[in-house]
Amino acid sequence: MSKERIKIAEELFDIMPPEYQDLVKRATFGNEQRGWKDIGNAKELIEEHSLCAGCPESMAFRYILASLPNPEDTVMVGSTGCTSLVFPHVAVHNIHSLFGNQNAIASGLKRALSVRFPGQVKDVVVLAGDGATVDIGLDMTLQAWFRQEKFTTICFDNELYANTGGQESGLMQKGFVAKMAPVGKTFEKVRLPEIARESGCHYVVNCTVSKPNLVEKVIKNAIHIAREIGPTYLQLYTPCILEIGKNSMEGLQEMRDSEKPTERFAYKEYVSEPAKELLAELAAKEKERKAEAKKQLAGQTA
């Protein structure tokens, strides 16, 4: 795991467009402490995005890509929807799957990677919209969890089909009227986090992406637990400002309003017993690492 793997041929370095030179020189590959605080200081693993201006999905992408613990050995699996517009700009291996198939593709991929690279850490992360995860792909989503496939599923929940102009989704709130769903939703928002828990996920979080440090924490937990124990699921509220009639600056406030204790995106977390043990182990190691770093720093300044 290091930058050694991502090197431009010396003789052709000068002709590479600057964004690739930057990736090699300033991205945080190989740094296990990477996180959202690198944004603005290091080269991000995302170039320009083609989402609507101010779309919270773009913030979510930035925080997630900054927090992947092992980007050079991570493969992301996406699905059709607004998220798929971003993947072509992402400097992490990724596969665009047929709409809804993402968890089936990720299952095969994860297994193939374990056979092809035994003993090496290879993380697989699914990132898809709510339509892909909960409606058209629900079968694949659930079956992967039942089978205890070792990868993370992230759902960008914007409570409708944004990319096709605003149709009803299972994660839409009851009563909501969208541009292409004029009658209004007649049943409750599907409780996928609870279903995930009952289906065998070892770590489930339901939250918004208003706080980058929180996104970093849940991403790292979800990936470490998936690596060692079994499936994990994150449902992140990334409101479609276009469809709910907000302007570019209002996405953050919308998320803050929706994460109040009585609201539907109040922080909810489930951690299985084996996952709790793993997190405690990781926390103890991190504490040790920090104490060691402090000791070394004191030694240097003495």
């Binding site: 431009i8 041929a9 010396e10 052709l12």
Partner: peptide
């Protein structure tokens, strides 16, 4: 037009080819 297989020094052969292309 050199492509990724010679632009990136992913093994020694690739690095040699890059030199030859230059």
């Amino acid at each position: 037009f050199p492509g990724p297989l010679v632009l990136w020094a992913w093994n020694e052969k690739a690095a040699h080819k890059a030199k030859a292309v230059r």
